[in-house]
Nucleic acid binder design. Structure first.
Length: 171
DNA sequence: TCCGTATTGAACT
DNA sequence: AGTTCAATACGGA
């Protein structure tokens, strides 16, 4: 059975993000890509559902919005909404480790692999990163390749560069 | 079971 | 210094 997700837009200076909430918390976060904007424009409005949003979810959304904007502004958010991460244990370990990376710091895929006790699973790590449902809040953009090179990024490499630049990192 | 992957480090131009 | 290549762990089909 599929869990019903509530989809809410978050307008930022960098575009309109889309947050998906389950009954347990924030489940997914969507980058504002060209399609997104185009679709939103086409519909005249970004997903204005008439479904009733519970107070609980409104609260989470508020936290998400604040946290997101903080990060885009280059500062570390103090409050996070609960995250409803769905994935394998391996993926959850990876995502959890990534959340521990503080703003302005970076780690290599190899580092993460080492921390979760599987030094050789670097490639699998990349896989897990690509499936990270919540970019930015789970700072997958702070994970670089070994030589401090940018790896890749789901939302586009531009975003990764931009986010890192926001945090004062240079290349 | 086979394929792809956001890696890595060593060998080879 | 840039490029190619095999090894490797995990998830999806």
């Amino acid at each position: 059975m599929k869990t019903e997700l509530f989809e809410l837009p978050i307008a930022t200076s960098d575009g309109i993000f889309c947050a998906h909430y389950s009954e347990k918390g924030l489940a997914k976060l969507h980058f504002p890509n060209a399609k997104n904007l185009d679709a939103a424009k086409k519909n005249g409005k970004p997903a204005a559902h008439k479904i009733k949003i519970s107070v609980k979810i409104r609260g989470w959304h508020r936290m998400t919005e604040t946290a997101l904007k903080k990060i885009l502004a280059g500062s570390e958010p103090k409050k996070f909404p609960p995250l409803d991460l769905s994935g394998t244990d391996f993926q959850k370990s990876v995502w959890r480790e990534m959340q521990k990376i503080s703003l302005g710091k970076t780690k290599s895929y190899g580092e993460i692999a080492l921390i979760i006790g599987k030094p050789k699973a670097v490639r699998a790590l990349g896989n897990a990163c690509g499936k990270n449902p919540i970019p930015v809040l789970v700072p997958c953009h702070r994970v670089l390749a070994a030589n401090k090179k940018l790896g890749g990024f789901s939302g586009g490499l531009d975003w990764k560069r931009k986010l890192l630049a926001n945090e004062g990192l240079k290349f």
